[in-house]
């Protein structure tokens, strides 16, 4: 088991390093003129600059170093969580992120339970209800949720619950009432995806031979569903849940834009609009790191929940 743990940890680190490399290549090697790109983002008009001024600017951002030097320098700094200076705002990337991360975390912490409860609840009902029309309706619902663009859902909720019913504020960040609509928006897509996967997983599990064994013992449908179906059917959903959790920052981009919340997502949107390369790089890396860490945890959780995976892990 420690061997498996170490292996998975090393793998996660390798993926993170590779992700850094990919992002670096895209941002620093791909653009035809990365220097112009970055300097113009810093508000400088290159055609107006004298060569000396240009040189000073390049020096300040480390842009005249050879590309490999920039790469290793950036990697070393990133390992120390130092992402350099923002090009558009005169502060460090680190301080910008620590400023905004709280708002996004707050939103996520409310949205996540909503998502999990909504997704599992809907699937559980759809699988348990016997009355055909209700069952069909419940089973079709997630397909709608998965198709609607998140920004549309957000705008619809604002129109209905703020402008028409005046129950919740449309924007802003004061108090729990302002959290409700963004959290619901954020959780809807994930809940729909979870429910979609679980409904199929439940149906597949109900058809498995070991369920016949359980029913032949004389257990009621409810008991069978709770004790034998739920756990086996949830295992594939755990993987999806990990992915959804790892997408927190990404989700926040759209939701925070719709509800004008000042979090990491808004920061990301502004960074891209301003082509603020260091800031974009840092946010993407944080998103990737979140993804990798959550999925590492999910993998470890598997070894606790599924004896077959545990056996495979013990074997190396």
């Amino acid at each position: 088991m420690p061997r498996y743990l170490a292996g998975r940890l090393a793998q996660a680190l390798a993926v993170l390093w590779a992700a850094y490399t990919v992002v670096f290549v895209i941002l620093h090697v791909l653009p035809s003129d990365p220097i112009t790109l970055q300097l113009s983002a810093g508000g400088a008009d290159i055609s107006q600059l004298t060569p000396t001024q240009l040189h000073i600017l390049k020096d300040r951002y480390g842009l005249d170093d050879p590309i490999l030097t920039q790469y290793f320098h950036g990697l070393w700094n990133a390992l120390h969580l130092d992402f350099g200076m923002s090009l558009t705002q005169n502060v460090t990337v680190g301080s910008l992120i620590t400023d905004k991360v709280g708002s996004t975390l707050e939103l996520t912490l409310v949205a996540l339970p909503l998502m999990v409860i909504g997704g599992i609840g809907l699937a559980y009902l759809a699988s348990y209800v016997q009355w055909r029309p209700a069952r069909t309706l419940l089973a079709r619902l997630p397909a709608v949720g998965v198709s609607l663009p998140q920004f549309f859902v957000g705008l619809l909720l604002i129109q209905a619950f703020s402008f028409s019913l005046h129950w919740f504020p449309a924007t802003g960040e004061d108090g729990w009432r302002s959290l409700v609509l963004p959290a619901v928006t954020m959780s809807l897509l994930g809940a729909a995806m979870l429910a979609q996967l679980l409904i199929r997983s439940f149906a597949d599990t109900w058809r498995e031979p070991h369920i016949a064994t359980a029913r032949a013992k004389g257990l009621s449908r409810g008991t069978v569903q709770l004790r034998h179906v739920l756990r086996n059917a949830s295992l594939p959903a755990l993987t999806l849940l990990g992915i959804l959790l790892g997408y927190t920052v990404t989700n926040a981009v759209v939701v925070e834009s719709v509800f004008s919340r000042d979090g990491l997502g808004q920061l990301a949107q502004r960074a891209v609009l301003g082509q603020d390369v260091p800031l974009v790089q840092a946010i993407v890396l944080i998103a990737a790191a979140g993804f990798v860490v959550v999925n590492l945890l999910v993998d470890l959780l598997y070894t606790l929940l599924d004896p077959r995976v545990a056996a495979a892990a013990r074997a190396g």
Binding site: E208, P209, H210, A212, T213, R231, N232, D306, R308
Partner: peptide, 14 residues
């Protein structure tokens, strides 16, 4: 009931 295929007749997570 004694089911057909013992490989899949038991709940794998119990």
């Amino acid at each position: 009931l004694v089911p057909q295929d013992p490989m899949v007749g038991l709940n794998p997570t119990m």
